[in-house]
């Protein structure tokens, strides 16, 4: 469950996120919005690249932007200590708390094989090298359907395969929240279908909540039970996907020609 409370991000005079409050509790949540709506900024707040000017984000009840009260008797001392450090915690340490993300441009290293690319993530998600790690890597690759490409160099993978590999990288370890930033960019319809299938299965595969950003409304409809719409940093709508997409203000702000598309379909 993602709880966002009064999040504001300000860069000089620009406010990519403006007093955003929303609770997202469905296993697969979609986020749409026109360019510059603040979608990626929100993701960057989650992964710690952007520090919010004010407000709080909590994932599964744990705040990742604010310090918790120090003397909460319900928490173990270690958890308290970690939580107290959280605001100062480096982004790379957030991985150990189950936050995973992909990027708009895929980040597959060209000169490593697919296996090595995924392995590189596993190197840091586990305490030390173990058979379980090898197993986990293979399983993730198998899950996204790339086993036959196991030993291909990153440079020899197709766009679709690279996007899928990115998702595999995000499934290593015990993720609690998997954030996908436009995984469907540049994919054909058939490829999108496979992708949707993969995304839909993630909650069952590892129990993580999925947070999906995409411009491809079909993909959002196919995957997400809940969708939020951002416009200029403000929350425009949130709710069950179908209902949200039918709201007139959403159509107006973002899907100006959605009706046309629907008619065409």
């Amino acid at each position: 469950m993602i709880e966002i409370k009064n999040i504001t991000v300000q860069f000089g005079g620009v406010k990519p996120l403006d007093n955003l409050t929303v609770t997202l509790d469905q296993p697969i949540v979609g986020l749409i919005g026109p360019n510059g709506a603040g979608k990626t900024t929100l993701l960057n707040v989650f992964s710690g690249f952007v520090t919010p000017t004010s407000g709080e984000v909590a994932i599964n009840g744990k705040s990742i932007t604010q310090r918790e009260r120090r003397f909460d008797l319900n928490l173990t001392p270690m958890t308290q200590f970690r939580a107290s450090l959280f605001t100062r915690m480096k982004p790379h340490k957030r991985v150990s708390l189950g936050l995973r993300r992909t990027f708009q441009t895929d980040q597959i290293a060209d000169d490593l094989t697919l296996l090595e690319n995924v392995q590189a993530v596993a190197d840091h998600g586990f305490a030390k090298k173990s058979p379980a790690m090898q197993e986990d890597v293979k399983r993730a690759i198998d899950y996204v359907g790339l086993t036959r490409r196991l030993h291909r160099k990153g440079s020899d993978l197709s766009t679709e395969e690279r996007h899928l590999a990115e998702i595999a990288k995000a499934l290593i370890g015990k993720p609690s929240l998997v954030m996908l930033d436009e995984p469907g960019a540049g994919m054909s319809e058939a490829e999108s279908e496979h992708l949707a299938q993969v995304i839909r299965g993630i909650p069952d595969y590892c129990g993580a909540q999925v947070f999906l950003i995409d411009h491809d409304v079909d993909l959002i409809v196919a995957c997400c039970s809940q969708t939020m719409v951002l416009d200029f940093g403000k929350l425009l709508a949130v709710g069950p996907t179908r209902k949200v997409l039918e709201l007139p203000e959403v159509r107006k702000a973002y899907l100006g020609d959605f009706g046309e598309l629907e008619r065409a379909a």
Partner: peptide, 8 residues
């Protein structure tokens, strides 16, 4: 991306 993958 390295950071997001947990690499220091």
């Amino acid at each position: 991306a390295a950071t997001a993958a947990g690499v220091s």
